[in-house]
């Protein structure tokens, strides 16, 4: 039995995950919590947010995010991918910045208009 704090939403439910009973989750208040509890012990993932260089706009950086969760172990290699990226305005929210991050099928996308 492992105790976790759910990070799916700001509520922060206290989950109990039973590894011996097929990762059965208790203490969650929504189905996403159960999913998180199971995933956290089998293949933990995170949405990664950062910024990339941007020229021509009001700010020198443009925020980006992965448009889905990536494995926790891929976080630092994924950050390294952003070092070489420079966007030029106009940038639209949702525009793909790096496609298929480390073969995960998830893209880095712009998180604002610039």
């Amino acid at each position: 039995m492992k105790e976790l704090i759910c990070i799916v939403c700001p509520k922060g439910c206290r989950l109990k995950v039973d590894e011996e009973r097929d990762y059965a989750v208790t203490g969650n208040s929504c189905p996403r919590g159960a999913e998180y509890g199971r995933a956290e012990l089998t293949h933990p993932t995170r949405v990664l947010t950062s910024t990339v260089r941007c020229v021509g706009g009001a700010h020198p950086r443009c925020p980006v995010k992965t448009n889905g969760p990536i494995p926790k172990g891929d976080i630092f290699p994924a950050m390294a991918l952003l070092d070489g990226v420079t966007l030029t305005v106009p940038v639209r929210t949702g525009q793909v910045v790096v496609k298929n991050v480390l073969g995960t099928g998830v893209d880095f996308v712009a998180a604002r208009d610039l």
Partner: peptide
Amino acid sequence: CIHNGFGLHYFKEELTGPEYAG
């Protein structure tokens, strides 16, 4: 606030700060 987690109550999805403002 470029991290995500905004809008779960209001938009029922997880947005970054700039997206929420947008």
